Computed example of a mutant assay.
Amino acid sequence: MVCGDHFDSPLGPMLALLNEQGALLRLDFLPDDLAPAQWHGYTWQRDKAAVAPVVRQLAEYFAGQRRVFDLPLAPRGTPYQHEAWRHLRQVPYGVILTYAELGMRLLPHKTSARAIGRANALNPISIIVPCHRIIGADGSLTGYAGGLQRKLALLELEGVPIMRQQSLML
């Protein structure tokens, strides 16, 4: 049975869903304060205690006290997506890469910026699998399921110098 809970973050309401073993399946920003009983194909029941470690580690991250997450993860995806997400998790706090640079790291299967962009777009675990650290080749912020304002806020939290005017003109 999938369990989860919704909670507030400094960037808006979020929902965490975990599998029976307690591994994180999804972590999403919610469009509003209401968490539907079905979310991205999962029917879940509320379990605040199970989600507490996720909420704690995110609170530490937002407070500037955590740079690496140590939660068990179990996202659904293709083998290629899992490989891309594994490489995303290796991008350190406060570091940005372009989609092409991340694609070059997927050895021996170097891949295109477009393929990396698609894997990022399907990333089911926001922040912890840090797709917000991937930017366009021209340095612009491109695509983020949580919205570009949140992507900018996450990068600023991590101390990444981003030109606010250029970033928001998308």
Rank of each mutant, 00 (worst) to 15 (best):
L122A: 11
I125A: 07
G136T: 09
L155E: 07
P72W: 07
Q149D: 11
V91F: 00
P124V: 04
V91L: 03
E156I: 04
A137M: 09
A113N: 02
Y99H: 12
G147W: 09
L155V: 01
H82S: 02
I135N: 07
Y80S: 12
C131A: 15
L97V: 07
P161S: 14
E156C: 07
R89C: 08
G117Y: 09
F69A: 12
G159P: 13
Q90M: 12
I135L: 13
H87P: 09
I127S: 15
R150D: 00
G139L: 10
A153P: 10
K110N: 10
A100D: 14
L97I: 00
P75C: 04
R105W: 03
Q149Y: 10
L106F: 03
G117K: 11
K151I: 08
K151P: 02
K151C: 04
I116M: 08
G146L: 00
A145G: 13
L154W: 05
F69G: 04
I125R: 03
A153I: 09
P72H: 06
I135R: 10
T111C: 07
G147A: 01
N123V: 04
L122V: 03
G117E: 03
R150M: 02
L97A: 03
L71Y: 03
S112V: 01
E156P: 01
P108G: 06
L107D: 01
R150Y: 00
A113Q: 09
G139E: 06
Q81R: 11
D138G: 12
Q90W: 06
I127C: 14
G143P: 00
R114N: 06
L141I: 07
D70W: 01
S112W: 02
G136N: 12
Y99R: 15
L107W: 05
A74G: 13
R86K: 04
F69Q: 12
L155S: 08
H87V: 13
T142F: 12
F69R: 15
Y144T: 04
V160M: 04
T111L: 03
I116F: 03
A121R: 14
E156Y: 05
Y144E: 10
L106K: 06
